[in-house]
Lab assay of single mutants.
Amino acid sequence: MTLTLTVPPGAKVRVRITNENGETTEIEVEPGETVTITLPAGSTVRVEVEVVDPDGRKRTETFTLKP
């Protein structure tokens, strides 16, 4: 399973991925970048995406991906 994120110009994104064992991976994606994350097959993962807009506003979306 893959997750692809494209960050709009001016925004910053931090992604936290937590697996079933509670292990967390965190990455930051710079403005204008596209990143593809390969998620472990057969695992349920929690993905938290934090977006910081150019004006400093933050918003966070959290979702769970199941196999």
Rank of each mutant, 00 (worst) to 15 (best):
V51H: 06
K66F: 15
G56P: 00
T44E: 12
T25R: 09
T62N: 02
T38Q: 06
G22P: 06
T18S: 08
G10K: 11
V45S: 03
M1R: 02
V35K: 05
N21W: 07
T25L: 09
T18Y: 12
E26D: 04
K12E: 15
E61D: 02
T36S: 07
T44K: 02
T2C: 15
R14S: 14
V52G: 01
P40F: 12
R14D: 13
T34N: 12
T2D: 03
E23M: 07
V35L: 07
E23Y: 10
T4E: 05
T4G: 07
E33A: 11
V51W: 15
G32P: 12
A11P: 02
E26C: 04
N19T: 11
T62H: 05
K58T: 10
V47K: 00
T18P: 09
A11S: 10
T64D: 12
E50H: 03
P8K: 11
V13W: 02
V49T: 01
T62L: 03
S43M: 14
T24I: 06
V15M: 09
V52P: 00
V52R: 03
V13E: 02
V7W: 15
V49N: 00
T38C: 15
T38K: 05
E50G: 00
I37V: 10
R46A: 02
R16S: 05
T25H: 06
L39H: 04
T24N: 06
P54A: 12
M1A: 06
N19W: 13
R14P: 05
T6P: 14
T64N: 04
S43A: 13
M1T: 03
A41C: 13
E20I: 05
E23L: 06
V52C: 06
R57S: 13
V52N: 01
V51L: 02
I17D: 03
P40V: 14
D55E: 02
G10V: 06
K12T: 12
P8L: 12
P8I: 13
T60G: 00
T64Y: 15
T34H: 11
T36M: 11
T25F: 12
P31N: 11
T62R: 01
V15W: 05
D55Q: 02
I37R: 11
T62W: 10
P67R: 01
N21V: 08
V29P: 13
G22F: 08
R57W: 02
E28N: 09
E20N: 05
E33R: 07
N21F: 06
P54Q: 10
E20G: 03
R57D: 01
L65P: 01
P9M: 06
T60W: 11
V7T: 05
T25P: 08
K58S: 05
E26K: 04
T24S: 04
T2K: 08
R14G: 12
T38G: 09
T2F: 13
L65M: 13
E61P: 01
E28C: 06
P8R: 10
L5Q: 03
L65F: 15
V15G: 03
T60I: 13
E61N: 03
L65Q: 00
P9W: 08
A11H: 03
V15A: 04
V7K: 04
E26F: 03
M1D: 07
I37H: 11
V7C: 09
T4K: 07
L65N: 00
L3P: 11
T64Q: 03
E61G: 01
V45T: 07
E48C: 04
A41Q: 07
T60L: 05
L3T: 04
I27V: 10
A11F: 02
P31D: 12
V15Q: 02
I27C: 11
D55F: 02
K66M: 14
V52S: 03
T25I: 10
V35T: 08
T2N: 05
P67G: 07
V29H: 09
L5D: 02
T44R: 02
K58D: 00
R46W: 09
V47I: 05
V29L: 06
E26Y: 03
P67C: 15
G10Y: 03
P31A: 06
R57Q: 09
L5G: 07
L3R: 02
N19L: 08
P31R: 12
G32M: 13
E28Y: 04
L3G: 03
L3C: 14
V29C: 11
R16A: 06
P40S: 10
V13I: 03
T18C: 09
T64F: 15
P9K: 08
V51T: 12
E61K: 03
A41S: 11
T4N: 06
T34P: 12
K66T: 15
L5S: 03
R46S: 04
D55K: 00
G42M: 11
P54K: 09
T44L: 09
I17L: 10
V47D: 00
K58Q: 02
T2V: 06
T24C: 12
V7F: 15
P31C: 15
P54E: 10
